[in-house]
């Protein structure tokens, strides 16, 4: 899987999913990552491996701005340097004990990571985005991407009169599995951003943010609408591979997503 090299910026989670004081795990091919956020609200993306005994740091815990391995309590500061070895409290931890770092950025409600040596500018999407959800799709990212690129996904959305409009998703492909869908006549949202994390050769995590339109009180409705659409996207991508044709399903049963072309499924 060439995408799994993290040689370009890759979405690894929603910002809101990693609240201050927590750590979690993300996989990108062979890269096993721990994502954690200290009380300083800074997110960090590291190799998910304590150099002491190889324990996954995502099993560890955050106290203040430090991450502690759950196995023997080795504790690391925000730069990945070991600051405490509890079994040897009088020992200054050797400088060589340091966790491998990834470049990380937060933009559009999404956490992005790349190999530490990357020189590319972090992704940038103007406007105010709200994280919607992350959704696991049991297909490789190339397959998810090709579905987006084909324009087969159709997102329905109500306009200000409550009329349901359907538009074919013609996403602007930002390269590297990021799809931005602009909606001009929806009263719920202006745009939807879908960023794919290539977890493995069989799974993609799609991290999705929304640029809502209108009052904050309506945002929940917009998020739920997009989440329902994502469940249909998941069904379409997964079923197509299994040879299940969605064309035979009555349109009324598929309110958000339809086949655009009527060629063989």
């Amino acid at each position: 899987m060439e995408e799994a090299s993290l040689s370009s910026w890759t979405a690894v989670g929603l910002s809101a999913a990693v609240s201050p004081g927590t750590a979690c795990r993300a996989l990108v091919g062979d890269h096993d990552l721990v994502i954690w956020r200290g009380r300083d609200r800074q997110v960090r993306v590291w190799e998910n491996r304590c150099p002491h005994r190889g324990m996954r740091l995502s099993y560890g815990f955050v106290r203040g701005d430090r991450l502690t391995c759950c196995y023997h309590g080795w504790t690391y500061d925000g730069e990945g340097a070991c600051t405490l070895i509890p079994a040897r409290p009088d020992l200054a931890p050797p400088k060589a004990v340091r966790i491998g770092q990834y470049a990380r950025a937060e933009h559009a409600g999404i956490i992005w990571a790349a190999s530490g040596s990357i020189g590319m500018e972090a992704p940038s999407f103007p406007g105010d985005w709200i994280g919607c959800r992350s959704i696991a799709i049991d297909r490789p990212r190339e397959e998810v991407d090709s579905h987006f690129a084909s324009g087969r996904f159709i997102l329905s959305h109500p306009d200000q009169h409550g009329e349901i409009n359907r538009i074919a998703c013609a996403p602007s492909l930002n390269g590297d599995g990021v799809h931005r869908i602009e909606l001009h006549d929806s009263h719920l949202f202006e745009a939807v951003l879908c960023a794919g994390q290539p977890v493995s050769g069989t799974q993609t995590m799609l991290h999705v943010s929304v640029r809502p339109r209108g009052a904050a009180g309506k945002h929940g409705e917009a998020l739920r609408h997009v989440s329902d659409w994502l469940k249909e996207v998941r069904t379409l991508v997964e079923n197509r591979r299994a040879g299940i044709r969605t064309l035979g399903v009555p349109r009324a049963r598929l309110p958000h997503i339809l086949e655009r072309d009527h060629g063989p499924g």
Partner: peptide, 29 residues
């Protein structure tokens, strides 16, 4: 890791008053 909403719910559960663990479930995080 593919189910972030489940992980948030698990964390809320472990923070319930009176919660205690069993082997395989941690409470330090």
């Amino acid at each position: 890791s593919p189910w972030p909403a489940i992980r948030r719910w698990l964390r809320r559960f472990t923070n319930l008053p009176g919660f205690f663990t069993m082997p395989g479930i941690d409470h330090i995080r």
